[in-house]
């Protein structure tokens, strides 16, 4: 790692017009474990890999419910995610109170994006160090947005953030055309497959480290942890990993891209 003159703060442009502090904040996302999101015509699903600091410690929460129609998965600094998710809850509540309407997904996402942008333009603040996948359903259907510390937000059909997420993205790019017409269960399995593809060589998905959330048209946001994900993992067991099966002694073909 090398210092340069232009990376002290987020109010200095480099001669190329880059803002290094913001770019470094984007790197913080990759320090977190992977989270995957995807949408069909009827559902939006988030799946994520939880980490525990030590064997006897609990697993870090990866998915946060915001409202009955909306939730987020995070990768990066969890405290920053809590600040943002609390803010989203406020937005959500105020929309219900003032307009009697669940907040539209794009609007709550833009609200945190605008909040994040300010931190990249004023001295004495730092950009948020967390990436979010926001999944929710509103009057215009299910949506999945990716939020970045730069204040960038984009709507996706499928997205992955966090450590080694490139492998998950590769899966999503290969399979995304099937998502649209997938039913609830198929969509979750697609998500878990993408998640599995991003695991390190010696890791596997277990009921302890896998977390799933589903929200759909006419179906409230629900978080599944522990034994609740067991059934999905069993179904997943019968399906070959798209990277060539994890049980055998296949060659290590895909080298890590992130980390």
């Amino acid at each position: 790692m090398f210092r340069n003159n232009y990376d002290n703060d987020s109010v200095t442009f480099s001669p190329q017009g880059r803002i290094f502090q913001v770019e470094y904040a984007l790197e913080a996302i990759k320090q977190g474990s992977v989270a995957v999101g995807l949408v069909s015509k009827t559902h939006a699903v988030l799946v994520a890999l939880k980490r525990n600091a030590e064997e006897l410690g609990s697993y870090q929460k990866k998915i946060i419910g915001i409202d009955t129609h909306l939730g987020v998965a995070l990768a990066g600094l969890a405290p920053d995610a809590r600040v943002l998710s609390n803010f989203m809850r406020q937005q959500s509540m105020s929309s219900r109170l003032l307009y009697n309407r669940p907040v539209p997904i794009s609007r709550v996402v833009n609200a945190i994006a605008n909040k994040a942008q300010v931190n990249t333009q004023h001295y004495g603040r730092r950009p948020y160090g967390v990436g979010l996948l926001v999944a929710g359903v509103d009057e215009t259907g299910p949506h999945l947005w990716e939020f970045q510390p730069s204040g960038m937000v984009l709507e996706y059909k499928g997205a992955a953030i966090g450590a080694r997420s490139q492998s998950a993205r590769t899966y999503l790019e290969r399979a995304f055309e099937e998502f649209v017409d997938s039913n609830r269960e198929e969509l979750v399995l697609h998500g878990l497959k993408a998640l599995r593809d991003s695991l390190a060589q010696d890791k596997e998905l277990t009921t302890a480290n896998t977390t799933v959330s589903v929200v759909g048209i006419g179906e409230n946001f629900k978080l599944y942890d522990g034994d609740e994900v067991g059934e999905w993992l069993e179904k997943l067991g019968n399906v070959q990993s798209s990277r060539g099966g994890r049980t055998g002694e296949e060659a290590v073909e895909s080298m890590d891209t992130s980390e």
């Binding site: 109170l97 003032l98 307009y99 009697n100 609007r107 509103d138 215009t140």
Partner: peptide, 19 residues
């Protein structure tokens, strides 16, 4: 101007006015 496919309907406007 949000241009996101959402529009305020009567019940939303009613809630706003009553607040």
């Amino acid at each position: 101007y949000q241009n996101d496919g959402h529009h305020l309907r009567a019940s939303h406007i009613y809630r706003y006015l009553s607040k």
